Structures are given as structure tokens and as C-alpha cells.
Computed example of a mutant assay.
Amino acid sequence: MSEPVLELTGLTKTYKPGTPGAVQVLRGADLSIAPGQVVALVAPSGAGKSTLLHIAGLLDLADQGRVTICGQDMTGKSDRIRTAVRRRDVGFVYQFHHLLPEFSAAENILLPQLANGVGRSAAQARAMKLLDRVGIANRADHRPAALSGGEQQRVAFCRALANAPRLLLADEPTGNLDPDTSDQVFAAMMELVAGTGLSALIATHNLELAARMDRVLRLENGRLTEITGQQAGAGFLQSD
């Protein structure tokens, strides 16, 4: 059996511990994602989806538990090592695209590659290939302000995959789009994921989109539960 791309074991996280306002958002969360799997993460508002994604992506630390990425246990690793693993193996997409406004679509995808030591010619070629895969190569020279919301988010997906990570983490990536655009952007994202074979953990409130992924996990009371197709059909999937 292939080694999981992401494993979370016994994660706990409490904000403001030891105070009357302490909030325990993770209470022993466990997760394993195999190569090529696309996993949906649903949860009630405020349940800790973003916290879980930030810990999984090495942007935050759990109080207890273990994060393993591509077989490498990140427990106790230095900031330098965590940054190197995050840059090499993890791509992020958020609800808002966070593109650099002074650069074109292609340049937004080019820059992370240059920062990772890729030559400019190769980086430009990969940027154009990714834009072509999501159907907006003809918009490569446009700055974000000249792009539609759906186009901006497609560029954000391409930027997340610029350095060919093994894992994509997405936090409500279509939450800021209208339903039709959301569906189109999701389809483009799935095309990118399928074409690269990477794994993905995607937090979403859109239950129709969640049901189209390989697996659905619900985060509630600090723990993760797998939701089956039957349960989803029975209305078990309710994010709020």
C-alpha cells in the first residue's frame, strides 16, 4: 500500500489555554490521505477547519499530536525544516485569491517558482501550461484587477501548484463565487488535481461539491468522522 501523503495523529489545539475563555478546537483529530485522494472537509462554522488546515500545512503548531507529510514526521522540527517541507510539498488555496495586484496572472505563478530556484524560462513554461490546463492561457498577461472572480481563483490554483507539491490544502476555495462560477472553478481545480496526481484536502460549505470528492470528513467537537455516501444522501452532511 502506498505511503500516505498526509497523516494527522491525535491532534489537539486549545486557544487561550488556562483562561476562562479557553476554546478547545481539536480534541484528538486523526486523518490519513493516500496519494491521489481528494478529501472534502465539512464542519459547522467555527469548528476549526482553518485551524486543522493550518496545522496540516505547517503554518501552525498543534498542542499535541503528530503531522506527517510524505513520510516525514514534522514533530519538533525547526522552522527552517518546516518551511522547506511546506515550500516543496504543500500548496495552499484560500477563499480569497490573494494574488499580487501589480503582477500579471503568469507572473503570479512564475514568482513562487523563481523563489524555489527554478530558472525563468522553465518557470514561464510551467505557468503557461497550468493556465492552459484551467482554460485561461489567453489571460496570462492580465493583472488580477482585469480578471473575473473565477479567473482570479483559477490563477490562485495554478500558483498553489506552481512548485509541483504533493499535497493541496484549500480553505473554502469557491466560497466567494456565485454557484455557476463555483462549479466551473471546482471542475477546473479537479482537472488540475487529476492531471498531476496530487492529494488534496478541501474545506467547503458546498455539500454538492463535497459529495463529488473521493471522501468526505466532518469535523465536529474536535474530531474527524468519515461520512459515507449513504449518510450524505440521508442529509447527514450539514455544515451549519
Rank of each mutant, 00 (worst) to 15 (best):
S2V: 12
S2N: 13
E3V: 14
V5Q: 02
V5N: 01
T9E: 13
G10W: 08
G10F: 08
G10S: 08
T12G: 05
K16G: 15
P20W: 01
A22F: 02
Q24M: 10
Q24Y: 07
L26C: 10
L31W: 06
S32Q: 15
I33R: 03
A34T: 12
P35V: 04
G46S: 04
G46L: 02
G48L: 03
L53K: 02
I55Y: 09
G57M: 09
L59R: 07
A62H: 01
D63E: 03
V67C: 05
S78H: 05
T83L: 08
T83K: 09
R86G: 00
V90Q: 02
G91R: 00
G91M: 05
V93W: 05
Q95M: 06
F96D: 04
L100Y: 13
E102P: 07
E107D: 04
Q113V: 06
R120Y: 10
S121Q: 15
A125E: 09
R126V: 14
A127P: 01
L131G: 03
I136H: 09
I136Y: 08
N138V: 15
R139A: 10
R139H: 13
A140Q: 05
A145L: 15
A145Q: 07
Q153Y: 08
C158N: 07
A160H: 04
L161D: 02
N163H: 04
R166W: 02
R166S: 09
L169R: 03
D171K: 07
E172G: 06
N176W: 01
P179R: 06
T181Q: 05
D183N: 11
V185T: 11
F186R: 01
A188S: 15
M189C: 10
M190I: 10
A194V: 12
G195Y: 08
T196Y: 06
L198Q: 02
A200E: 04
E208C: 05
A210H: 05
A211G: 04
M213L: 10
M213R: 09
R215N: 06
E220Q: 13
L224P: 00
I227T: 04
I227E: 01
Q231V: 06
G233K: 09
G233D: 03
Q238S: 13
